[in-house]
Computed example of a mutant assay.
Amino acid sequence: MIDQLKKEVDQGLSTVEKFLPSKYFYDKSGDALFVKIMNLPEYYVTRAEHEIFKTQTYAIIKSLQLDPDIYFDLIELGAGDGLKTKELLRELDRLNYRFDYMPVDISQSALDNLKVDLNKELPSLSIQKKHGDYFEVLELLKENKHPKVILFLGSNIGNMSDAVATDFLSKLSDNLQKKDKLFLGVDLIKPASIVLPAYNDSQGITAAFNLNLLDRINRELEANFDLQFFKHQPEYKESDGIAKSYLVSTKAQQVYIAKINKSFDFFEGEKILMEISRKYNDSILNSILSKTDFTIKGKITDSKAYFANYILERK
């Protein structure tokens, strides 16, 4: 993974409009910071989706057309701490559904912690944790002919551009059988007064989460980023429906990354794009899905209509 990190950091910082891949947020420190973010009063995303899982669990099971007599694989991409999924797992376990739960994550520590928690809370649950890239894992599971339900929650799809999301969903469908389901979490378009505070909390946790990636590059690639000379800056327009998080250089400076053996220049005010967070509506999602093998079979929203979980089916 260190070679991939070197390659992608070099690529991102060598472009005219600098960027860093958001998937590298999630080391041990990043995992802990993101758990804090999910509990922030400003961060509505987790609460809204958790409400769906907590209050509409049976509706989820019904919408996925799960049969208690047919064994299936429940595969969660980017499982994290499993907070929301546990609501569904408890109900499936209580109703004696037959399935394997397969959490997939790039973070080994997140997977290990999740398995420990689930072994305590649901000791009879079959857990097969999968560490690595989503598509590598799905490719390995392709020969398994069990019906599959994929969970892709937390609006993780929103971290992709529409073109990348289209490609991602196309690749995902290539690894599934006809009638397999995807339960897709998306953040819905809403005013900036609601969205922006979610990415710029009063405690500075989101800023620390973004800056932690520079700290990770310092540790793992022997770089000399001085974090005091970078500031967190989120941007969002309701008309665009896309929130962006930047780190901005507060002065002209040069950063050397020893394991890449290369220096990178920053001018005062230069931005590094750290993350995008696409907000959706039916029209945007349908446009993306029109180029894939998925079709919308249902939709569940929270009480404020801040968030939606779409039920997609492989054609």
Rank of each mutant, 00 (worst) to 15 (best):
D162A: 11
D180W: 07
M160N: 14
N156P: 00
N144P: 06
V186I: 14
D174S: 13
E139M: 12
K178L: 15
Q177T: 08
L151M: 07
D167E: 15
K145F: 06
L153V: 00
L138T: 05
L172Q: 09
S155Y: 00
I189R: 14
V137L: 07
L172T: 13
L140W: 05
G154A: 03
L176C: 12
V137I: 15
S161M: 06
D174C: 12
K171S: 13
V149R: 02
G154N: 02
D187W: 00
N144I: 14
L184M: 07
L176H: 05
L188R: 02
E139C: 10
S173E: 10
D187M: 03
S155I: 04
K181E: 04
L188Q: 03
S161D: 13
L151E: 03
S161A: 10
N175M: 12
A165E: 13
G154V: 00
L151G: 04
A163D: 15
S173I: 06
G185K: 03
L140F: 07
F152C: 06
L138C: 02
N144L: 07
S161Q: 12
I189D: 03
F168C: 10
V149W: 00
D187Y: 00
I157D: 01
S170Y: 13
I157V: 01
E136G: 13
K145A: 13
L153I: 00
S170K: 15
D167H: 15
D162F: 09
L182R: 10
K148F: 01
L151D: 09
K171E: 14
N175A: 10
P147N: 05
L169T: 12
K181V: 11
N156M: 03
L184I: 05
S155E: 01
D167M: 12
K179I: 04
N159W: 01
P147W: 09
G185C: 09
E143P: 04
L153P: 00
T166W: 10
F183W: 08
N175K: 15
F152V: 03
E143F: 11
D167L: 14
Q177N: 15
P147C: 04
L188W: 07
I157Y: 01
S161W: 12
A165N: 13
L184T: 04
D180M: 07
F168I: 11
E143W: 02
S161Y: 08
A165C: 08
A165F: 11
L153S: 05
P147A: 02
S170R: 14
L182C: 15
S170N: 15
I150E: 01
K148H: 01
M160T: 05
N156I: 02
L182H: 07
L184Y: 05
E136W: 09
V137R: 01
I150Q: 02
K171G: 14
L184V: 03
D162E: 15
G154C: 02
N156E: 01
V137E: 05
L188K: 04
N156H: 02
F168G: 10
L138K: 09
A163Y: 11
P147Y: 13
F183G: 01
